[in-house]
Design a protein around this nucleic acid. Sequence first.
DNA 1: TAGTATCAGAGGTAT
DNA 2: ACCTCTGATACTAGA
Length: 703
Amino acid sequence: MEDSLGPDSAPSVPIDKNKVFAIKPLRCLVPIFPSQGGASSSATQQSPFAFVAPTGPFPPGAAQFFPFVAPSESHRQGGSAPNPPNNEKPYAIPSPVPLNSFRTPAPAPAPPPADNGAKLTTRRSSKNITPYDDGYTQSDGYENGFTIDTEDSSDAIKRKRKIRKTVKGAQAVAVSSSEVDIDPLVNHLLKSFQLLDIDTMLQADSNHELVQRVVLVYNLLRRKITQLDDAKGVIPGISRRADLRAGTILMNKGARVNTKRRVGSVPGVDIGDVFFFRMELCLVGLHAPIMAGIDYLSFKVSGDEEPIAVSIVSSGGYEDEEDDGEVIIYSGQGGVQRSDKLLMDQKLERGNLALEKSLHRGNEVRVVRGLKDVASATGKVYVYDGLYKIHESWIEKGKSGCNVFKYKLIRVSGQPEGFLLWKSIQQWRDGVTTRVGVILPDLTSGAENLPICLVNDVDSEKGPAYFTYSPSLKYAKPYGSSKSLSCRCSNGCQPATTCPCVEKNNGYLPYSSGGILLSHNLIVHECGPSCLCPPSCRNRVSQTGLKLRLEVFKTKNKGWGLRSWDPVRAGAFICEYAGEVITGNAIDSDDNYVFDAGRVFEPLELVPTDEPVKIPFPLVVSAKNKGNVGRFMNHSCSPNVYWQPIMRENEEESYLHIGLYAIKHIAPLQELTFDYGIPRGEKKGLVKKKCLCESSKCRGFFY
DNA sequence: TAGTATCAGAGGTAT
DNA sequence: ACCTCTGATACTAGA
């Protein structure tokens, strides 16, 4: 067809202005001017930098939350007088069901029915187990009385011990800060996201939202710890594993879900969900061991302890053979794995034994696929691929001549597409298959460093209305004057230095070494044109082009939209909102592609307002005639993307840009959306659009 | 730049 | 105490 999707292939498909694209995306951003003329100039009063809480349970405007700046004082009101917290509870959780309460023993529901003579019991140690679990009704209950007793005490001890351990560790390490300093921040996070007393707040069903929230909070915390660590510089002997520390903190605080092992799917975790850290799998109850690939539980069958496998992570660490997407040949564990060589025979114990038993028992095993994250140098992605069954097992001689257990798993049919989708995407990427509905392999005609596919597989529309593709924001004149210093970091700006660019960001670099935004900021100060650092500087994330393979696609009922082939990490830069900066009152009233930073945005969970908003706003951008992919991003009341102002300046001039970043992890091909905000004051001539975001928090309209 | 070696880790199980 | 399909970093090989 249209030959390959390579970056260079695009120009072969020139855009014909006259014939293409009669239809406008539904995306409608209509400009609005502050009514009394006051609002625009008084941006300092009502923060324009408030964003919607992605999954936040609080109602609009109710809970302002700014933990990342001066956590100790973060309870002070923000700029705009937050409502009393208990005003209203539009998202009140019905009938609290204790999922995993250690403190409040409740009458025990009958244990799950045993299947063919197998009698469920707890293991001697302590755990409640629910091998054949169909949800909370059984799993969240308790075992019989005597079990509860032992469980209560042993778990309490466990917890205590854990806490003691943490404290001791912190002292030993002599980083007085770490856990201690971070504690208020953590508490604030948990409070804002209603994860403080998760045991009693759990909903009985549909807790996908809750699972998302846990992962979201984990990542906010992890990124913040990373940033704090960065600022301290490298201290030999001190762990840099922010992923583990953030996880430990949440574990100890009980901010986790589905703590009980179970066979089968995990409530709130959907096939295709993506994770980026093993700790996340643990926190949501998908796979408990933090390193091991096989998770299992034991119960008694006619007197004998018998383990069965409940989940595996297939990461290619052993000599697994790859498959067609529905079959996995999985290697057992053990044998002392040393850089792809086995030093001794594997034994039929632990996970291996569990897999063997599961083969005979025929129970379903959850499969998590660990893959390389294309957008990250060293990172991995974990995709939940649904349930599999073990069909065969055998022993093989590995490369080094040692015995390896092998298990053949086949995916249970009738489940939604999981990993298979990833394979398809890979094939599109490689140009192996021709994809249905591709209109243009690259609608940017090579203007971006990555092609952006235009695709319609729902109807016959041939594309959006014509516009000129422009990857960056066009200023007629500089946004403002500046006396800002430029840096001289020839190797790129580094944290824990006195580089002026670090200073501008309050002593922190806003991005991780992997280009992930580490915290929410009033404004991100990136390096400017006269900084001496190279383009690869990690403080130039928004200036170095697209990192994700995006595509513009026809949605079912919202016109054209934007999505990514690659999985997106929380905090990842997606794209700029490019276009032409509009000054004065020059906004065309039927311009549906206006981004107006002066609108009111629902508060995002993490916006520091301790420091007064000083940025001379508003910034208004029109992408009607000129723009980039950002113009295709639709509105949602439960968005997965938010925007951040980015300042780039040199000695004389400053330029403000709008960066779009992922709020949470986003699986491939999920639509990217952000909150368009609500115009201030009178909505002169503005047409209220019906919102089709289908979120439970949908306002019903947008502008 | 990509591979590899290194190593401290964490929760969990087993003893 | 022991186990482990982590993950960040420092290092090496290579083109």
